[in-house]
Write a protein that binds this DNA or RNA. Structure first.
Length: 590
DNA sequence: GCCGTTTTCGGCCCGACTGTTTTCAGTCG
């Protein structure tokens, strides 16, 4: 069972509890939803955590839930879950994925309209709504029309089911904030939510505006030319769907309270819930409007112009948005001991780049010449640039031919090195680890390189044990220093392969190997949660772009964001070192 | 069902908007 399936199951149980509407379940279902959120966000598979007995380390999943999940993994289902699920018609659950349909409405629709087939319930409901005149309590004409639209949009894949990659979301948010700033009533416009936390995929786009004339701002917003429709509109907030199908939520607040608004809508939800829980213990109540003192009976809220003031008023250090996931950052902020996160300006070089040099690889070749990439590196202020084209294809060449190709690349690099002096060139190669753990180039060819970067590009479906052994075998060569895109995941098309991370981390730590944080947006690999784990194990990392074209080199920022989400500091990232130190590490042994 | 510098028992974030009523339930973030 995948994490997504387990999370969905827990959400269904929570929905069943909601429908049963028994006070007894009220807080239980919150716990189920929280567990579902934690599991969806986890980079480790729950099935693995259960088998390895590591579920106890996960905060938010207690003894009872651990028992349920163990039963789920070993027996395929959970008796306790079934007692809830069987009380609710199965056709209710698919409807929960449709925005605006929650447990209560789904149950009402299914029972009153006698929808019995879960496989076709969405189509059946739409058909009933469009073909008949229905009278359902609390579902008037307007509600029914809204439902039809929601079902149609859901069918097209709009709304919360599709997430977009961060750079794309950045672009849309930029267009919106630029549009908003066209009227003078807008003092400040910022994109918040998961986008500001720099999550690698973004669901909907949240924008906050500081203004003392909210009506004018809302009126301007709902006139956005590239919208398909306005979802809702109130005095201080509004939501619309862009013509591309992305939801944009707008909040407006007076300038003097903008700090509280920024904080609130940056989230994450779990961070905010934890923060408010902490506040309650201090007899304070937090909201997007500021902080209310509960011991005094007054309704006066203290307002905060900046986020720093807001966090400080809580006795906390300001928390970088990337860390706001309730993974222990609030505890550290209380002690004023948050890590000092790595920044883009700390990066001194990029190691994983593919030039257009004709290396005859089995995978893709880059599109930009080495010279142009070096010029770009110079503009970016780098001290060094590593070329790491894929190894020449093994099936098309003999070992001798591979050596000859690499020798020529070597001569070419030596030639251009004499022209460009400000950026040092590092001779690397992205080397496949074959299914049996061997490298796709031999020792003689490896001797031409400064170091090797290894990665997996085939046979992804191996068992966890075999894959782990395969990777360790590949990394074992003394010339190999870096494992590229360690999980192999590709957003929207490929799940991670199975690896025993503790074993891999320990190996890297012992043998002085680095893991890559690949900045390519579809990859974003290592994922943030594994970066955090790697750091706990004392493993060093490098942040690379995996550029195949000169403009890709600008994507380094996205790798840095992801590293920050994993709490990486400058000392954890090796390509923050100057050339001499980095080269020393590259040549160094274990 | 979870969790602990008020607590191993007794708490559990806070507010906006919509639609349908006329004071609120449901959904969302």
């Amino acid at each position: 069972m995948t994490n997504a399936e387990i999370a969905k199951l827990l959400r269904n149980v929570a929905a069943a509890m909601t429908i049963l509407n028994d006070r007894e379940y009220h807080f239980q279902l919150v716990a189920y939803e929280k567990a579902a959120d934690i599991i969806s966000a986890s980079a480790e598979q729950v099935t693995d955590l259960v088998r390895e007995g590591k579920l106890a380390d996960v905060k938010g999943i207690g003894e009872i839930m651990r028992g349920h999940l163990t039963e789920l993994v070993t027996k395929g289902k959970v008796k306790h879950f079934e007692t809830f699920l069987k009380k609710i018609p199965a056709a209710v659950f698919p409807l929960l994925d449709v925005p605006s349909i929650g447990p209560k409405r789904a149950y009402k629709l299914v029972t009153e309209l006698h929808l019995s087939k879960p496989e076709t319930v969405i189509a059946d409901l739409k058909k009933k709504l469009t073909s008949e005149k229905l009278t359902i309590e609390r579902f008037g004409e307007t509600s029914q029309q809204a439902l039809i639209r929601a079902l149609e949009e859901f069918g097209k894949g709009a709304g919360k089911t599709t997430r977009m990659l961060l750079p794309f979301a950045d672009k849309i948010a930029m267009q919106l904030t630029d549009y908003l700033k066209k009227i003078p009533e807008v003092h400040q416009a910022e994109a918040l939510g998961s986008l500001r936390r720099r999550v690698f995929t973004v669901g909907d786009i949240d924008i906050a505006v500081a203004s003392n004339e909210p009506e004018k701002v809302i009126a301007h917003f709902v006139q956005y030319p590239y919208k398909s429709r306005v979802i809702e509109q109130g005095p201080n907030t509004a939501s619309l769907l862009t013509s591309g199908g992305q939801q944009v939520d707008l909040m407006v607040q007076p300038i003097e309270g903008f700090g509280s608004l920024l904080q609130h809508f940056t989230g994450s939800k779990h961070h905010n819930v934890h923060l408010r829980d902490l506040a309650l213990r201090k007899k304070l109540s937090l909201s997007e409007y500021g902080i209310k003192r509960l011991d005094k009976k007054s309704e006066v809220r203290e307002k905060y112009k900046t986020e720093e003031e807001f966090y400080n008023a809580m006795g906390l250090e300001w928390v970088p948005p990337e860390m706001r996931e309730d993974r222990g950052e609030i505890e550290l902020a209380e002690k004023h001991s948050l890590p000092h996160l790595v920044e883009l300006k700390d990066i001194k070089g990029d190691l994983h780049t593919h030039s257009s040099y004709p290396i005859e690889p089995s995978h893709d070749l880059g599109l930009t010449s080495m010279e142009d990439m070096l010029k770009k590196a110079e503009q970016l202020g780098y001290e060094y640039l590593g070329f790491s084209e894929h190894n020449p294809s093994v099936s098309q060449h003999t070992e001798r031919q591979i050596f000859s190709i690499l020798q020529k690349r070597d001569e070419h690099i030596e030639h251009i090195k004499s022209n460009i002096k400000s950026v040092r060139v590092i001779k690397l190669l992205e080397i496949d680890i074959l299914a049996n753990g061997s490298l796709s180039v031999d020792d003689k060819s490896l001797s031409l390189l400064d170091a090797g970067i290894v990665s997996i590009h085939s046979s992804f479906g191996m068992s966890k044990e075999k894959m782990t052994q395969r990777i360790l075998a590949g990394l074992s060569h003394p010339k190999v220093k870096i494992l590229a895109h360690p999980t192999g995941r590709l957003f929207g098309s490929r799940e991670s392969y199975d690896v025993d991370w503790d074993t891999l981390f320990d190996f890297c730590k012992t043998h002085n190997k680095a893991l890559e944080i690949n900045a390519w947006p579809e990859r974003t690999d290592l994922p943030d949660t594994l970066i955090q784990e790697a750091i706990k194990h004392g493993v060093k990392m490098v942040i690379d772009t995996d550029s195949h074209e000169v403009s890709h080199m600008d994507l380094m920022q996205y790798g840095v964001y992801n590293a920050r989400r994993g709490w990486a500091e400058k000392k954890d990232i090796l390509n923050t070192l100057g050339y001499n130190e980095f080269a020393k590490w590259l040549k160094g042994g274990e």
